[in-house]
């Protein structure tokens, strides 16, 4: 436990932030560089395809980032691989871990506890992804389904499944309830909760799939703008 005489704001800064942790600081560096590049080299709406980084969501991008940063799946990954607490479960390769400071989710990282509020904003943003699909289909005035449309659709589905499989969703749609088949709330199957729990079991894999999809779609559209990748038209019909 923290020494009592330390001032309270100091307790708020996780010890990890004060360490010369190259993993963590290179991550911060890459994130800042990436954000600058996204703003400097904006991607126009091309062939009716909106780069997912530039749908109106960009305005609320910080909220999307906070949704992912407080997500239980990413928490595991950065606590392990950025902060080394612990890097691996094997007992012999954590030698310095005990000597380094650790406050877990009791200090600054208490913020993780409002994950569900970032999850609510994520639901608000989802429709924009579907609007972008719609836009890519009708933007010519005719109905056009291109390779890009398909890719945007896969991306939108991945983000939706990711958001739906969230642990906070699991809690709110039934996890908080201890008796589903009691006289108070007859629900003898509890099927939504059970279905969601099955997806939730793969939440980590889904989280990473959808993150990688984002980057992939971004590169795909950048490639098209640069004229390297053709946007193959699959279906073209008159409205």
């Amino acid at each position: 436990m923290k020494a009592a005489n330390e001032s309270s704001w100091k307790q708020l800064i996780p010890p990890e932030f004060l360490e010369p942790n190259w993993r963590f600081w290179s991550f911060v560096f890459i994130s800042i560089l990436g954000s600058i590049l996204i703003v400097l080299y904006t991607v126009p709406v091309y062939d009716g395809l909106t780069d997912p980084f530039y749908t109106p969501t960009v305005l609320i991008l910080p909220l999307v980032v906070l949704f992912r940063l407080t997500c239980y799946a990413y928490r595991k990954d950065y606590h392990r691989h950025l902060f080394n607490h612990p890097n691996t479960c094997a007992a012999d390769v954590r030698l310095d871990s005990g000597k380094r400071g650790y406050t877990g989710e009791t200090g600054f990282f208490r913020i993780e506890n409002v994950h569900r509020y970032f999850m609510y904003t994520a639901w608000g943003i989802l429709p924009f992804f579907y609007y972008d699909i719609y836009h890519s289909i009708v933007y010519t005035g005719a109905i056009t389904v291109s390779l890009g449309t398909v890719i945007l659709t896969i991306n939108a589905v991945a983000v939706t499944v990711y958001t739906f499989s969230c642990h906070s969703v699991r809690h709110l749609i039934g996890g908080y309830r201890d008796c589903v088949n009691c006289p108070a709330n007859r629900n003898s199957k509890n099927s939504l909760y059970r279905f969601q729990s099955r997806l939730n079991g793969h939440h980590e894999a889904i989280a990473w799939t959808s993150l990688i999809m984002f980057v992939f779609v971004d590169l795909f559209i950048r490639g098209m703008v640069a004229g390297i990748i053709p946007n193959i038209v699959l279906i073209h019909g008159v409205l």
Partner: peptide
């Protein structure tokens, strides 16, 4: 609050209890 969801406990449980997903995270949510 000291648990940081790193799931080593789940990895070693011989009874294959999903400790982190089914016990710790729901308790945190509560």
């Amino acid at each position: 609050g000291y648990c940081n969801i790193t799931k080593c406990c789940t990895e070693v449980c011989p009874e294959e209890i999903h400790i982190t997903d089914n016990a710790i995270i729901p308790e945190k949510e509560r």
